[in-house]
Amino acid sequence: MAEPPAEQPGVPDINKRWVRVTGTHGDFVLFDFTIGDPDLTVELILPFPAFLEFCATNHAPATVEPAAQAAYERLHRRSWTIPLPQRRPGGASDRLL
């Protein structure tokens, strides 16, 4: 899994994105999302299927913090029973998933 690069000069590349799972809450995944530079990180929360969709859409490799590993895997296993989100017809999201 790719890690965010160390401090680099110049303009951050907005096409480079990373996800780091920090915890779970019920069916939700808590994670840090980074674009281009570790300074540009935001804490987000999404339901598990939406989280997977989000990582795929953004071509963002995901890592899981050791403390969140067990809970995340539990969610992963349980997710067999969670239906995938409905796609909206005609929306831009269609081509992304």
Partner: peptide
């Protein structure tokens, strides 16, 4: 902030996510 930024990110609004970068730290 967390649900709003998550909504922005999930709905493809990366521009708004950028001000989340600024605000959250």
């Amino acid at each position: 902030f967390v649900p709003f930024m998550s909504g922005a990110a999930y709905n493809g609004d990366m521009a708004t996510v950028t001000f989340g970068f600024s605000a959250q730290s």
